[in-house]
Design a protein around this nucleic acid. Structure first.
Lengths: 365, 365
DNA sequence: ACCAAGCATTTGAACGATCAAACCCCTGAA
DNA sequence: TTCAGGGGTTTGATCGTTCAAATGCTTGGT
């Protein structure tokens, strides 16, 4: 077990001093090019790596971001969280930042964890994937002026004009609008909607997007729209039930837009069972199940979400926290636009190949 | 912005020295109880928290575990990874350990990342969620004697007798066996099997479990078993195709055991389409989709997996790496047994409530 | 009365990096 | 000739903690 080389060792080999090595690493512009070369050579020769903890102790920065893993029930769900974590980890790596996970029981426990991570200089900032209304956690972070961003808008009440904290979100209005447009472009004249029954921004925005597009393109009034929409808890069985109800209407929809892929899957099943297997169904989140079965779905640009979150915390580049003030020109939030991934509308009994994206798909690997 | 308190501050308030405070924290047994009380009071009064980086610098331990996030395609997939990460984070918290994520492009990039994290004293050990054969990454870690565990056996060739590195896995043989037993207990006399066509331990073990139980309970020979089994790529469409083929056989199976919930979902769809909606289908991984639709599935005890991984690295308790040698009494691996979560066998067109587990279900929250 | 042994606590040094200030050397203006 | 200015580099101090060795106090055996 050999001793790891330190700045001192590098300095000796390069024939310079500690600090010059440090400068070569952290302030390249102030070292003479020729010296730089020697230092770099010495670093390569010894395989030197800065000791992260020593640096952190001195600089009081950790270059690490804490990410709270929600219990499954809240926040972004299922494989979306996977993909987001992946994207965040990759984007963070670009800036020489690392991701540290944490979790805890209950809000108090999490605040305790915030405190611990902050006081231990373990993290420079937090990324939260939850959007609870009046969340005591975000309140604590604000009160203690500790940098953080959320994936998801805090709530409807927190206006775009003066956000109470930085956030990144994906525009559900636009997503549902695109889904609806896709169905209409495919020939649909009455597009049904199956959404969530909770009182969240997400639920509201998506329904509004569907309603707006339906009204504009199909001339449907709000009473008529109400008959075409169902609000349920997320899940396959709920999708089956809601779709069955819609398709049994006297004036049934000829296409369905759903607020999740689970609901869409349920809708497809119901359609097959009710003898309407060809009816177009559009899902949301573009999960693997949508790709596997082959129905269209709205794709959230998770790597952009991740990049934007980091940008809000650390600026355009670099890895030091920047304090920001909200302004119209440089808002404290980022509202991103999703893209529809169009696939050949599928009958459940047939096997189809996954289709190709309509526009750039951010999540193809 | 007030200065955070240090050991020195605590020492002053408690009327003792630095080191005594340190001892109170790290070696409680060597401080006099009365002193202990005073120190504890001072800590509470000042709200003192040890500075993690300073401690790491001195002790050369980070109390942090690096977890490599695989690209989606490999390793444990989809929401399983979510659940595992969650479990790991929670188990780690119990031991005052933290989880740091990382990822990279290609094996070389990941090895570079290993080196970086090791040399920077960022992590004490790694947990990998991939099981590639002859993986250069695990080879590097072994060569450099850096502690790590994998979730998943390295490969069939790496025998239980002399594992080439520590691992935790869930017994696929037992899982498939239980699934098959469940089907037979429900009255099935010919249980079909839809598994993976890749040459992995997972694929082999699960098929073997199904075959063994079928042979033992139903007296089926290996030729007959071959006609009842299909090996495909994981995915819903593949499940549909394989199930359709099996159900179209002259001597068709009266139940289906599948190596994933995706395949099971496909099988259920095919069954519904072919007019056999009541046929029992058992899935694998107990993903949300199984719960939602209501079919039985084999549940992997992810929190046990996480706990076992930590145990292999850090011993029964504590947070310092323990070097282990493989022995029959104390093997370098943990093979865990999954449990079947039985649900009322579902016809796709009906809505059913999720059932309750047959045995303890580790993943209910 | 002496010293060995043990316990609880304290003191000085070290971990590996960066900060702040000092230093050296060169140039150019007075 | 002198000195101010500045780029490039070095030196001493420091971040907060734990290690290793030293200290003081008690106890008990001979």
């Amino acid at each position: 077990m050999q001793q790891l080389p330190t700045v001192e060792d590098v300095a000796r080999v390069a024939g310079v001093s500690r600090q010059t090595v440090s400068n070569a690493l952290n302030s390249p512009h102030i070292v003479k090019p020729e010296t730089m070369t020697r230092v770099k050579a010495a670093i390569a020769e010894l395989g030197y790596r800065p000791h992260a903890s020593a640096r952190r102790l001195r600089t009081r920065k950790s270059s690490t971001i804490g990410v709270r893993l929600d219990p499954m029930t809240n926040g972004i769900s299922g494989s979306l969280l996977d993909r987001f974590l992946h994207a965040l980890t990759e984007q963070a790596a670009e800036r020489d930042l690392r991701i540290m996970l944490f979790t805890a029981q209950g809000p108090e426990g999490e605040i305790e964890e915030f405190r611990r991570l902050r006081d231990g200089a373990d993290v420079d900032a937090f990324v939260l994937t939850s959007t609870m209304h009046e969340d005591p956690r975000t309140a604590w972070l604000r009160d203690h002026e500790f940098p953080f961003v959320t994936f998801g808008r805090p709530s409807a009440a927190d206006d775009l004009g003066d956000p109470i904290h930085p956030w990144v979100d994906v525009d559900g209005f636009s997503g549902a609008e695109q889904a609806t447009r896709h169905a209409i472009d495919g020939g649909a004249r009455r597009v049904g909607y199956i959404g969530f029954d909770d009182d969240t921004t997400t639920a509201r925005e998506r329904r509004a997007g569907w309603a707006a597009e339906s009204a504009a393109r199909l001339g449907l009034g709000s009473a008529e729209l109400d008959t075409l929409a169902r609000a349920v808890v997320d899940g396959v069985p709920q999708g089956i039930a809601a779709a069955s109800a819609l398709l049994d209407l006297p004036n049934a929809p000829d296409a369905l837009v759903c607020a999740s892929d689970s609901l869409a899957l349920g809708a497809l099943m119901a359609a097959a069972t009710l003898g309407r297997p060809g009816i177009p169904v559009v899902g949301y989140d573009n999960t693997p199940v949508a790709a596997a079965i082959g129905f269209s779905s709205v794709d959230q640009p998770l790597d952009l979400v991740a990049a934007s979150a980091l940008e809000l915390l650390f600026g355009d580049s670099g890895s030091s926290i920047v304090a920001r003030k909200h302004s119209a020109a440089d808002p404290l939030y980022r509202l991103l636009t999703p893209t529809l991934v169009a696939r050949t509308s599928t009958q459940l009994t047939h096997m189809e190949e996954p289709g190709s994206p309509v526009a750039g798909n951010h999540n193809e690997r």
